[in-house]
């Protein structure tokens, strides 16, 4: 009898496959990260209120220096966005030609009380594209393609204006509900919608009857972030997107408690 891969592994493998087919490399990077790569280089300086937007695990007594010779502390990375900087740095170091197109799945950490939908450790997927032709429309196209492939259904996404220091414009991303196809309703029996009669059915439990699912954050890479990575924002633009892998798995399969993914329980794993 074959064993079962962890659902997060399955999701990551599928995510990499989707991105690979679109020409995006998968990269990995450190979970224990310096403050510069996790915050400063992402346009979140030390005294900025945006640092409060994420609850951070700081490492006791760990000190190092960034590439400018300044003292930095260490954290458990609060997002996979650290890999935006590390990958840009690598491209510049190795003299690789742009466009840069990567995805980065990985474990991240937040210092917040745990419950069914919050874990102190979870997984994120980051997408980054840097080229001369990057635009918000291209970002939407990539995100739609990604979710459509992952959830196996043609989905549209919508942007809401928001703020993350490392992107400008910055957006929250909502995905059309893959279960009710954006209607907010699940048909019961052989009930189908007609031009004269709207769909009658049960409220969709996945999107709480809104037809939309809040799924991630995205935007055009802030020029300061490109600079921190060593890329001249006068010549290049970028877009980035990030969302929780755990959340994607929980949505797709109806897993009701994120903690079940990390307690090593085969009753969960073996269902996949």
């Amino acid at each position: 009898m074959n064993g079962h891969a962890h659902p997060i592994t399955l999701a990551i493998a599928r995510i990499s496959q989707i991105f690979s087919s679109m020409g995006f490399d998968t990269v990995d990077g450190p979970e224990l990260e310096d403050e510069w790569h996790n915050f400063d280089a992402l346009n979140v300086p030390g005294d900025h209120p945006a640092r409060d937007m994420q609850d951070t695990f700081w490492i006791q007594g760990a000190k190092g220096q960034n590439k400018h010779g300044e003292d930095v502390g260490y954290v458990l990375r609060t997002h996979t966005s650290n890999m935006q900087i590390r990958t840009m740095e690598q491209y510049v170091r190795e003299g690789r030609a742009l466009p840069l197109a990567i995805c980065c799945p990985g474990k991240v950490f937040r210092n917040e009380a745990t419950d069914a939908t919050h874990e102190a450790q979870f997984h994120q997927i980051e997408m980054l594209y840097v080229g001369k032709d990057a635009s918000l429309s291209m970002m939407i196209g990539m995100i739609e393609k990604f979710f459509s492939e992952f959830f196996g259904s043609n989905l549209v996404v919508r942007l809401r204006s928001s703020y993350f220091p490392f992107v400008e414009p910055g957006n929250e991303v909502d995905m059309q509900c893959f279960k009710c196809k954006g209607t907010g309703l699940i048909a019961t029996g052989d009930n189908v919608a007609t031009p004269d009669q709207p769909l009658v059915g049960l409220g969709c439990n996945v999107c709480k009857q809104t037809g939309w699912i809040e799924i991630g954050g995205a935007g055009m890479v802030h020029p300061k972030v490109l600079e921190a990575g060593g890329i001249n924002p006068r010549e290049y633009r970028g877009f980035a997107f990030g969302c929780g892998i755990d959340r994607m798995v929980m949505l797709k399969y109806g897993v009701d408690d994120v903690r079940l993914l990390y307690n090593g329980d085969l009753r969960v794993v073996n269902q996949f």
Binding site: S21, F24, V27, A101, R158
Partner: peptide
């Protein structure tokens, strides 16, 4: 933003996995 028309980048390569 609902007036934006989605497009895709024109990359002809296949993305690779990290060594690990």
């Amino acid at each position: 933003y609902d007036t934006l028309t989605p497009t895709l980048p024109s990359l002809t390569r296949t993305g690779l996995l990290p060594k690990r």
